[in-house]
């Protein structure tokens, strides 16, 4: 069953149009990789999904409900959990406070988040600002999970992290996938890791979805053409 359905999405920042027709569909329990070179509209697409930016055209529905007219917090309440680009934890709150502030009832509680990222339990009393980049990323994911989302959106979750830490994050994503209850939309450029977790891929170019298919169908010709990998 389709959880997120976007069709013909257009969006603008003032007079400057950023999306020219994005089609995207995520099923329950599916992991979808949103790919594209820099500036092609990946983050803008995420902003539209999370209602941080209104689409000027097209339709966006979540769990069968049209969310075009919803404010950000109401869309989030439906089950959209965002891990924003650049981590962006609440730096002057502790790890515990970051998680506690976001908590909603559901399977993802402190115990579940600590089981996924034991380091968050160890660092519970530390301010988020004092954490390493990798720990902040774990906290950002933990915070999103504490909202008990149906769709977890990871925007450049491993960018700027050390290889060892990146591997930890990818392992956590793989663990999340195994639960089967959570759909994941992941924006990343590292194809080798995406191949381990993603089911479907959508590639954006110049604000438009130009390729959609299974990760196994993504061949060298396509990656050369659209991703320059």
């Amino acid at each position: 069953m389709s959880l997120l359905d976007m069709h013909g999405i257009t969006a603008s920042y003032g007079a400057s149009q950023a999306l020219f027709g994005v089609d995207l569909n995520i099923d329950e329990g599916q992991v979808l990789a949103l790919m594209g070179r820099n500036g092609m509209g990946k983050s803008t697409t995420i902003k539209v999904i999370c209602r941080m930016l209104k689409n000027t055209g097209g339709t966006v529905s979540f769990a069968g409900q049209d969310i075009s007219g919803l404010p950000t917090h109401k869309a989030a309440r439906l089950g959209l959990g965002l891990v924003p680009e650049g981590r962006r934890c609440f730096s002057n709150l502790t790890v515990y406070e970051n998680l506690y502030a976001s908590a909603q009832p559901g399977v993802w509680d402190f115990a579940a988040v600590h089981a996924l990222f034991p380091r968050l339990q160890e660092r519970g009393d530390q301010f988020a600002a004092s954490l390493s980049g990798g720990e902040q990323q774990m906290l950002a994911i933990g915070r999103a999970l504490m909202t008990n989302p149906r769709l977890l959106i990871l925007d450049e979750a491993t960018e700027g992290l050390a290889p060892v830490v990146r591997q930890e994050i990818w392992s956590a994503i793989a663990t999340l996938k195994q639960t089967g209850d959570l759909s994941i939309l992941v924006v990343d450029k590292t194809l080798s890791e995406l191949r381990q977790v993603a089911d479907q891929v959508v590639i954006l170019e110049r604000g438009k979805s130009v390729w959609t298919g299974s990760i196994d169908a993504l061949n060298t010709e396509t990656t050369d053409r659209y991703l320059g990998i």
Binding site: M52, T72, P84, R88, A101
Partner: peptide, 11 residues
Amino acid sequence: QNEERVQTVGI
């Protein structure tokens, strides 16, 4: 700190 970030957790 950041209004938008709080909204994205459903508040």
